[in-house]
Design a protein around this nucleic acid. Structure first.
Lengths: 318, 318
DNA sequence: CTGAAAGCGCTAACAC
DNA sequence: GTGTTAGCGCTTTCAG
């Protein structure tokens, strides 16, 4: 019908006919059926987003960044939670693919050794961009924080503040844990410092960060600083330290990464490294939309967002 | 085809035929096209969720509750952010409707006086359930916290702790602000207390809660307690109080509501009222699914989730 | 510039 | 149990 053209704003419709159609559309309260449209046009204008945990404000912020930058372009966003479980993620991917999404953005919880789920995406020719968790073996576009730079920024800040025995709460391998750990080690090495391996403890969230810090506090030469790979672990660390009657920042300085929204409301306002989560989402959306629009497959692009230091009281000079 | 029946697990297929089909499905890596399926079946198995702000952990938690309880039933969830803007919300509703969602869950930012957007949902016969923000004029199902009970619980707790001059940071009208304010007033009245109207100040988040509290702190008889209608405002209040050199809980006690995830990581662990956000999401999903399944329209149900007190250090006895 | 013809990939209802 | 016949409401292609 001509109606279809009017609805889609095609140019080849007479002005008079168009307004006549438009009038009738208002009158009947007509709304196009996107399901039918999607089937015929072979495009759904939906994109899928899979994150490990929507409750984590870092991912919530990314999700928001994606939404706000992609909605104006006519896309809707289906957000899924993988619960940090690769099997769940894998099935989410299939569901989204079955729903014929035009593209996918994922912060993947797949083990780097077994990423066949990505093969299925590629097999269907659906463009996707990876965020936050990087898979170097994969030739997919990636947008994320520069983890190594984050590790260096945080550690150097601590060193500048006079700390010598800097402990690290390391995140999950390989992402984002190893990059930040690498930056941490590089900064220490550059400053000629060395710490016992026992100063490096793993954790993932505030609860495990709390536990990890309690172990740290039982060490003989007490650390004089702790760099948590993310803000929740750093917040957990602060809780353990204060509970032990140790003062922050006088005796131990603490820094995190992520600049989550509540960072400056914590017991001691938490210094952190901002990784511009919103921009990560926006950029990922941008790359994805371009890939969807492209007729020929675009080469994968990698974008590392530069982190910035946010110094607050938890690392204030004594 | 018979294939269709196998995919949908219809009973009327021979065991042998079924396994033959299944084998071929694996072999060809076949995946049903949900768009086509939706068009033919007139059901999308998608539900739409609109919240004012995904970054607010209360809504993130609700979203998660909805997702986790509805995914196993075969539904996918499209989450939208209205940015607390009724025009945005209204257009989101139309988009979702155009996508033929089977149902809608909304924490609506519509002004109670102008809810024609709901009419459009009803006109299409799409079931929906309201959460968090209640619209008494509407005969729609509702799931939310019992705001008045929250206000009473928090205020009574403060009274029990010996506070007499209890200030309140009031939330947006009418929801959830007025219910909590009402509970606050009722608790004061029951205890025979009265406070000047200047003790009641409006705010919406941590920043405005901070500002509001600064005004509170300039009052002549200083309040000896502050009840923030939600945790962010209470956290902002704590910031302002501590900045002014006033001790919590010795001089001023503080309580919030919502029990957001970071509440016990704050400068002084924040007492709060838990409103079981996850359960709100689950219950809403549950009601919605039942309404979708029902052949005849079900009567609207209203579910108020009972709040519970979480006492932490910010209201500890002196 | 307008509209007729064909079909997107599936499910519904019914016959075999 | 199996497979047939019709669409679901649109977009595409191409003839008027």
């Amino acid at each position: 019908m001509t109606v279809s053209k009017v609805v889609r704003n095609c140019a080849d419709v007479g002005a008079e006919t168009r307004s006549r159609v438009l009038a009738r559309i208002k009158e009947l309260n007509y709304q196009p059926n996107w399901v039918a449209r999607s089937l015929a046009a072979r495009r759904t204008f939906m994109i899928g987003v899979i994150v490990p945990d929507l409750m984590h404000s870092f991912f919530a912020e990314i999700a928001k960044g994606i939404s706000t930058s992609i909605r104006p372009l006519g896309y809707d966003v289906v957000i899924c939670n993988s619960e940090e479980d690769s099997a769940v993620e894998s099935s989410e991917i299939d569901r989204l693919l079955g729903r014929q999404v035009d593209g996918l953005i994922l912060a993947s919880a797949q083990p780097p050794s077994a990423t066949e789920a990505f093969d299925r995406i590629e097999a269907r020719g659906v463009p996707y961009v990876l965020i936050d968790r990087r898979f170097p073996d994969r030739a997919a576009s990636y947008v994320g924080a520069d983890d190594q730079a984050i590790g260096m920024l945080a550690t150097n800040h601590l060193i500048e503040r006079g700390c010598r025995r800097i402990a690290h709460i390391a995140g999950p391998e390989p992402n984002p844990g190893s990059g930040r750990l690498k930056g941490y080690r590089a900064a220490l090495a550059a400053a000629g410092l060395s710490v016992p391996e026992s100063y490096i403890v793993p954790a993932t969230d505030d609860a495990s960060g709390y536990e990890a810090t309690r172990r740290l506090l039982s060490l003989k030469p007490l650390p004089d600083a702790i760099f948590g790979y993310n803000d929740p672990t750093a917040a957990g660390a602060m809780k353990a330290i204060l509970e032990a009657g140790i003062r922050i920042p006088e005796e131990i300085k603490v820094i995190g990464a992520g600049n989550v929204h509540y960072s400056d409301l914590l017991r001691v306002p938490l210094s952190t490294v901002d990784q511009a989560s919103t921009r990560i989402g926006q950029q990922a959306a941008d790359i994805l939309v371009k890939a969807i629009g492209a007729k020929r497959k675009k080469p994968a692009s990698t974008l590392l967002i530069e982190p910035t230091l946010v110094a607050r009281e938890s690392t204030a000079a004594r």
